[in-house]
Design a binder for these strands. Sequence first.
RNA 1: GAUCCCAUAGCUCAGUUGGAUAGAGCGACGGUUUCCUAAACCGUAGGCCGCAGGUUCGAUUCCUGCUGGGAUCACCA
Length: 623
Amino acid sequence: MRRVLGITHKRPGSIQPPGFPSGFGRSTRGGACAAHPREYIPPPMADVHNPFARAAAEAVAAATGVPASELTVTAPPRPELGDFAVGCFPAARAAGQPPPAIAARVAAAFQPTALLASATATGPFVNFKVDRAAAFRWVVDATLGDGASLVPRVTDRTVCIDYSSPNISKHLAYHHIRSTVIGHALAQLHRELGWRVVGINHLGDWGTTHGMVIAALQKWPPEGPLDVTTLNALYVRYREAIKEDPSLADEARAWFKKLEDGDPQARALWEKQREVSWAEFAQVYDELGIRFDEIRGESAYEADMPGVIEMLQAKGLTSISEGALVVEIPGEKTPLLLKTKDGTTLYATRDLAAAQYRWNTYHFDRSLYVVDRGQGLHFKQLFKVLEMAGFDWATRCEHVPFGLVRLGGKKTSTRAGAGAGKQDVVLLREVFREAQAGIRDRLRESNTDLSDDAVDAIARTVGVGAVVFANLAPQRDRDFDFEWDKVLSTEGDSGPYLQYSHARCASILRKSGTSVVLDDATRAALARLGHDAEWAVAKRVLDFGDTVARSAASCEPHILAHYLLDLAGDFSRWYTAGNGDASLRVLCEDAETRRGRLALTAAVRTALARGLALLGLGAPDVM
RNA sequence: GAUCCCAUAGCUCAGUUGGAUAGAGCGACGGUUUCCUAAACCGUAGGCCGCAGGUUCGAUUCCUGCUGGGAUCACCA
């Protein structure tokens, strides 16, 4: 199922003169689907991974007769009230009694279990306290064991994720990062949960745009090696030239037509564009640690166009509207366009083909399109047409929309790439370079014993981490205002803060001079743990699995991002408690306590590292 | 005009199918380092959760309307 990373070389399909250019300054992708609003549906209590939370619900269920699936477990507003709270509202409704009375009865009948130590009624809630020793054991086993039990796993499920999907002959600019980073996080999250994941880069490599670049290459042959900057400049210049001499548009069309017809010269130039573009994209993807399972551009579907159209025609779905071949959609004002009045296929047609290809190839349970919200209507209609065509799997297709990236309050992704001045676009590689430079300086100051290579390596990891995290922390739907200070921030709620917390864990473990081993002695030492700051850390780790599941199910990486901030904060509070009191340090005098604390530190380190990896961030051992 | 998204502290944002005293970060002010890395931690100040109705025992959360901001609305992708 996995494909080797590389460009799938594509034979131009048939005919169709190209549509009118434009759109070059825009990612092929971007959009939201209002027709299929995928709301996150929490799992029934029986599927909650945290065994302590589940036990709390089951205890109330057993005492009241209300099924656990109807109960919700939450965290009490203040930790001293308890660890997990179950509201007695459903039981009260069923019994016709006030919730506090039910809560009191449940608490009175409670008998301690292996997982739960006590139950207290507070108003309508039953607040459970966990058996801390059992919880510490669970946390350490789940994180330091084989890793299987930290998160809930599914089997035999497949998800296709279309993300990043830039246009060739153009730089990866900052506005591409959201799709790239969100898509990658969703891929990682699903992998963690046991899904088969097909990460797809649906390159924008087809259309008259590319005919324009070919024409420009003919007209103004560049000197020296070709790169994306040159290609983009040629494109911009050509577009400008068309304004003066409209016949150049026909020339570009003619070149695209040649490309479609398999003309060797056109094809060679087009392939060169792809090659040069991919070389640059690959550098950025490498920097981000992203590998796609399938790199299959729009050109790959050109040969499927006639079949798609025939299929829709055979089902009687097509009609001619204003000269264009369309599918009218009940309840929609505008139809889905399959072909222009000139006979050119459109991207909707290619998306229909791509959707079918993905189904036929992977039989996915979910097919995600991580595309900006502006494309909402397109996907809504696309999925609707698939449904109208009788594909019941259409309901498995989901739009994963995200907000715009703005620069100084302005939209940065430009439809008319020609008019975009340099100041309107922030290049991704420039952002990374800037981020890494600042961090490199910082490291040289604070870690003078590090080699230059080590400094460079850490600066890369932390610099990228800052940028990636800044994009993942806000929920997808919100627009994103690009601000250098914020994106490059290494303090407070930031990627570097998480990485720093991880480095502190690593540092403490390093200084212990021992390695944490998951054995009986370690488990026994956990009995020494328990003060509030320590307990807060362990309790947080209990939620790791359910958080990952929720984040993946709702396609919201920010849920995990905020969880990790909480975890890092809990850990920071814990270890700084040792600043004023040596007996509270991990590396304290008492050997048994020390052993237990080291195990918890190792658990946090593992949870942070795994969480960071899921978001696409590295976890350095030194900062 | 139609549709969609958003509105929570000065700023940027969280808030787990409706529940207990709405939380972080930044900024401001004040503290913490002979001590496992101060990229950290603690404290103080700061809120009509846009407005008005509705459903409910209970609404920041769900529904309707309104205001304000953004996006989309066919032969571009």
